[in-house]
Write a protein that binds this DNA or RNA. Sequence first.
DNA 1: AGTGGCTAACCAACCGATCGGTCTATTGAG
DNA 2: CTCAATAGACCGATCGGTTGGTTAGCCACT
Lengths: 222, 222
Amino acid sequence: MSMKVGQTTRDRLIDASYQLARRQGFNRTSVSEVMKAAGVTKGSFFFHFPSKESLGLVVLKRDREEFLTMIDASLAAATPLQGIERFFAKALKKHRETGFIGGCLWGNTALEMCDSNSSFTEIVVGVFKEWTAKMSKAIRAGQACGQIRRDLPPEVLAQMIVASIEGGIMLSRLAKKAGPLKGCLKMLMTLLQPIAMGRSPGEQWMPESKQRSIPHRQEKSE
Amino acid sequence: MSMKVGQTTRDRLIDASYQLARRQGFNRTSVSEVMKAAGVTKGSFFFHFPSKESLGLVVLKRDREEFLTMIDASLAAATPLQGIERFFAKALKKHRETGFIGGCLWGNTALEMCDSNSSFTEIVVGVFKEWTAKMSKAIRAGQACGQIRRDLPPEVLAQMIVASIEGGIMLSRLAKKAGPLKGCLKMLMTLLQPIAMGRSPGEQWMPESKQRSIPHRQEKSE
DNA sequence: AGTGGCTAACCAACCGATCGGTCTATTGAG
DNA sequence: CTCAATAGACCGATCGGTTGGTTAGCCACT
């Protein structure tokens, strides 16, 4: 299936496991399924990994590095708010590219494992903690330079952002449309805006259509 | 285990399946596990339900009615905003009572099934659609009477609320603390507030500590 | 009132398939 | 020749599901 050439057997197993776990979860993905997808036999599988669970943990660890690196790269923009916007755009792009199939490995694994498997949960908790911390730091910087409203505590705001994104991905995955996630991200940007003194309600939604940095290809449906 | 007396065998099976599925998901919950929890043997299980999946669907349908009824009951308050606040409080209370174990059946099932099992997904999609519609209606009413800021489209706002709650439940379930969900709900209430003309940033967070209607028992940790 | 028959409800042995995992034999590059 | 890497037969356990048989309560008929 995914069987890319030029990869080592180990890498192909990791890749196949990642793809399948993102769609079905780790529990429902059997060793045989991963083997078949990677074009490998059983003996080979257990030569590279002592157990199914250990492969799962390797998959999580690999994706963790990738994800945290992506966050840092996105947030390292000219201004904190631009960094956050870039991160939003990257996240939306990634899920749009996969057609909203599979969703977020972290959210999925969190809900699948967090009351049953502690090894998996430990890693997932760590990722969310780091993710939230990075967002929190960016928010604090944005508040310091007046780009982000100062009346909301950065830690809570960061947690809210992470929660909304996860929920937005979930809704977009269910609907197989970008709409829900895109809407959540747009609302988050609105929430971050400083409260302008003399601003009156009624004309804030999509105020300047030129300076938007979240790409908005038009959807075919909805 | 849960084996409450006075219930029919069928009800005990539904109950046991609900509890187990909320913690582990439907996939990881075996028929034998449900049988044991309900104090019933295999022959009896398949007398009442033609398959494991059919029991799962019954569980979902039962919880759907319960959940939608709860939403209606909560939103039917003196004012739209009070209704929304009551719904938030009810949701928080429910998850606090279960010690943030198991999370939301709908979010869990969404992520577990939505790219593999279409019967389950169909029900889940319906619940989220109805949930969002009910919130949307309350928001529109709140906007009409000036309780909720008018510059945000009610549909998007409703979707954002649902997404944040699901994400908040996820984070609270991971952390086994009320903090994340509570923070999300508080932020949502802030987001709903009308933009007061002369309000300046800096003193909005937890402004009046007396009129809060979301209960805030103090946490032992965090 | 007694009794034979019917059926909803339950029980437990059993089924093939598949699970995660082991083991031994074989391959092939250095 | 060596040994990392692969192949695939095989293992016990468990999966979802089936089957035949045993209750217990009710209903009809004498």
